[in-house]
Design a protein around this nucleic acid. Structure first.
Lengths: 140, 140
DNA sequence: GTTGACCTTACCATTGTGGGAAGGTGCAGG
DNA sequence: CCTGCACCTTCCCACAATGGTAAGGTCAAC
C-alpha cells in the first residue's frame, strides 16, 4: 500500500513516516517500480506501535529503544519495565514542577481584582526582585 | 555594566539576553564606545521580570505581553489576570493529559514482571492494534 | 489527454536554548 | 611594550518533532 494508506491506518502523518525513516527510527521502506514507498501489514504494525508510544509521551529516542526491545524476543522484561518506569518518573517530576508553578500563579491571580482597576498584584510580584535564594538546585 | 554582569545578576544567560533583544522582546541595549552592551538597574529589573515569568512557564510571546502590560500603567488588571488564568488553564490541561498517560503506563508496568523473563505485557500492549475508537477529538 | 489525487525530494519555519568559531577589547603582569 | 586571559562582538549550527510548501513525477478515471 502507499504511504497515504499507511498514514491513514496508523494515524502517523506521511510526513512523519518519511522523517522516521530518514532518521533511522524505521528501516528504509520498500519501493515500487515508480519510486513510491510500499507498506505491508508488518510495517503498519510498526507504525501503530510508534504512534502508540508517541501518544504515551515517549521521545523518539525512547521509541527507538522500545522498538529494539520489541524486536528482541529474548531481552529481559526488566529492561522494558525500567524504561517505562523512568518515563513515569519523568512525568511525575514534570507534573510536580507544573503544580508548584500553578500554586504560585493561583495565589497571584487570587489577589488580583481582575477588573477595570489598574493595580495588579500579579505584575507587582513578577517585578519584585527575587532574593538570590539558593541560586539553583545545587547538587553538592 | 557588561552583559556578563547583567547575566549573573538575573540568571538569564548572555546568549539569551542577546536573543531576546534580537527578537524584539527587549529594546536594543545601549552601547558603549567599544560596542559592548551596557546595562543599568532598569534593564536588570526587566531581565529579572523576564526570568521570573519564564520560570513560571510563560512563553516568550506571553512574556512579551506581560512586559507590555507591566509598562502600561493604565491597563485594567483584568487583562493581566486573564493572561495568567489562561496560562493556568493550559497547565491544568497538560497535567490532566500527563496524568492520564501515567495511569496507563502504571497499569502496564504493574503487570510486567520486570525480571529476567522475556514476556512483557508492556510491549504486548503497545503492539496491540488499537481499535479505531473515535479517531480524534471530533469537533462536529 | 486532461484533470485531480497521489507520490517524490528539498527546503524553511517553529520554540528556546546551547555551542562554537573568528575576531575585537581591556586589563594585569612580566 | 608584549603577552595572556577574560570578556565582548557577530554569525552560523544544532537540538526535538512537526507542519508547510514548492517543483516535479505518476496514475487512474473520464
Amino acid at each position: 500500500m502507499n504511504i497515504g494508506q499507511a498514514s491513514e491506518r496508523t494515524g502517523v502523518s506521511a510526513k512523519m513516516i518519511r522523517y522516521y525513516e530518514e532518521i533511522g527510527l524505521l528501516p528504509s521502506a520498500a519501493r515500487r517500480a515508480n519510486g513510491y514507498r510500499d507498506y505491508g501489514d508488518r510495517e503498519v504494525a510498526v507504525l501503530q506501535f510508534v504512534r502508540r508510544t508517541r501518544d504515551l509521551g515517549f521521545s523518539l529516542e525512547e521509541v527507538s529503544a522500545l522498538l529494539a526491545l520489541w524486536s528482541d524476543k529474548k531481552r529481559p522484561s526488566r529492561d522494558v519495565k525500567r524504561l517505562a518506569e523512568t518515563h513515569i518518573a519523568d512525568l511525575e517530576r514534570r507534573i510536580r514542577e507544573m503544580r508548584a508553578v500553578m500554586k504560585t500563579l493561583r495565589q497571584l491571580a487570587q489577589h488580583c481584582h481582575g477588573d477595570e482597576r489598574s493595580d495588579c498584584p500579579i505584575l507587582d510580584d513578577l517585578a519584585k526582585p527575587r532574593a538570590p535564594s539558593a541560586k539553583r538546585a545545587r547538587r553538592t
